[in-house]
Amino acid sequence: MIVGKTPRIRMTFVAAWHTLLALLVWDVAVTVFYYFAPFPGPALPLTIFGTGLALLLGFRVNSAYQRWWEGRIVWGAMTNNSRSFARAVGSFLPDTEQGRALRHELVRRHVAYVHVLRHQLRGQPPRESAERVLETTDIPELALRNPANGLLEGNGLRLARAQREGMIDTIQHSRIEAIMVEISNAQGAMERLRNTPLPAQYRSFPTFFTRLFCVLLPIGLVESLGPATPMGSALAGFMFLAALQIGDDLVNPFADTIHDAPLNAMCATIESDLNESIGLPPAPVVQPVDGVLW
């Protein structure tokens, strides 16, 4: 996530420069042709077309931002429910050697869970983070298709066993289980966002109409701008291409790019809070790098 105050127009330009270069060549060709064979440029239809295109791009950008913001919301819910989980197991488990050991195991497994989930969403191998947190290489859940869910289910089985052994009563177990259901719901929402892209029409139609508009733009401007047509047309085209690129940047909040939700920072926050709940030192704070918080 970009947190710097300086706009990164250069990055948008780099992403669109191939298209801009082709359009600039076309703009120059239209301008030269106009001076050899003048023709009337119909400005009004182009204005109507541009207005409709702006509405279409605005709708697409809003849809992409809604996905990004939902990803941030469900990770906020994961943070809150993780704190509630640590607080509940700390309050309900008995202050005995066995109870403290189980509490430590459950909390550390949950820390491993959020890191594994982060890697799953980004399509990265989770083993290194899981082994660092759990301090072991014997983690059978990593062999599952969904290792994050396996870690969560393992915690549920441990709590069920604790309830059968009398370490917590039925009401306490139900309360912790309700928190774990909320955690599972948050994971499901994240997986839905990751595995369900925007419909193809949301990308193909705006792309087609944006490029068509950029092709028609110098024809409508050359009569009024004259030699300045390539510059004016390229600038107006860049604005529409930039709006198109913004939608591409935000559509996947877990893509591990500078535009995605800061999963590293949020996982570090969860690890710090949960470590302190069991008397361990907090995790290092994730700082922005070159204006980007990962």
Rank of each mutant, 00 (worst) to 15 (best):
V3P: 08
R8E: 15
T12A: 14
V14A: 13
T19N: 15
A22K: 11
W26I: 05
V28P: 08
Y34K: 08
Y34W: 15
F39W: 13
G41A: 00
I48F: 04
T51C: 08
G52C: 02
L55V: 08
S63V: 01
A64G: 10
W75G: 00
G76P: 06
T79C: 02
A88Y: 06
L106Q: 10
R108K: 06
R109H: 01
V111M: 15
V114S: 05
R118G: 09
R118Y: 05
R118E: 05
R127S: 09
E128D: 14
E128K: 13
E128N: 09
V133W: 10
E135R: 11
E141T: 05
A143E: 14
G154H: 02
R161V: 06
A162W: 07
G166W: 10
M167H: 14
I168K: 04
T170R: 14
A186H: 05
E191T: 07
P199K: 01
R203L: 10
S204E: 00
F205Q: 08
L217H: 07
L225S: 08
A236F: 05
L241W: 07
L241F: 12
A242G: 00
L244R: 13
G247K: 01
L250I: 01
A255H: 03
T257F: 05
T257E: 13
A261P: 01
A261H: 03
P262W: 10
L263M: 15
A265P: 07
M266F: 07
T269R: 04
I270D: 03
S272M: 11
L280P: 04
P281F: 08
Q287N: 13
